[in-house]
Amino acid sequence: MKRIARSTLQTAANLIFFALIATAVLSSTYYLTRDTIAQSVERAKLKLVMQIAPAELFDNDIMRDKLDIPASELLGTTDTTTAYRARLKGEPSAVVLEAIAPDGYGGNISLILAVRASGELAGVRVVSHKETPGLGDYIELPKGPWIKGFDGKSRAAYKDADWKVKKDGGQFDYMAGATITPRAVVKAVHKALIYFDENRDRLFAETAEEPEGLK
């Protein structure tokens, strides 16, 4: 009995010894890399934002000038998302929004879009989707230029009835055999523009303290 107890304690002590060394190594690496990791994460996000909101559009620290946006039916979001504001010489020039198209062939399609202060689209990108590879995935940039078709479009230029794929009588192109996906994206972008129009002033409000006010 005594032998078992001794073996039990001794083994536990041994393992603790190794665990201590391991923890020490891990925590030191963690502290050494913590800042670099944070920088990398931010840089990656900025890279994405800059794809749709080109550098000449803003001179502010866009990653800091952000605004929490509560879930909205028009954006298709169910959680709070973040909007980034671009300002040029202090004047609001564009806002970067997240939107979700809920009726893709394979479910939700996450979008990020930049709307200029004029209500014109600066750019749209698909962040994630589950569309059929090779069929519906041409909405993704490297797979096809289709998404660039939104650049410069606005509700002023196209009537609401034009925000449809050509097959349904609208203005937007699509690929034969895959209409569901572009249909969903066009619809989501259109709704996001409506959202922008309805909330324009609040989106560009100088202070971001009252996100509740946005409805």
Partner: peptide
């Protein structure tokens, strides 16, 4: 334990220097 520590270290390093 040793392997896990090393992997975590590698993970931190890649996260920091090869984010993509």
């Amino acid at each position: 334990l040793i392997i896990a520590v090393l992997v975590t270290v590698v993970q931190y390093l890649m996260n920091a220097y090869m984010y993509g």
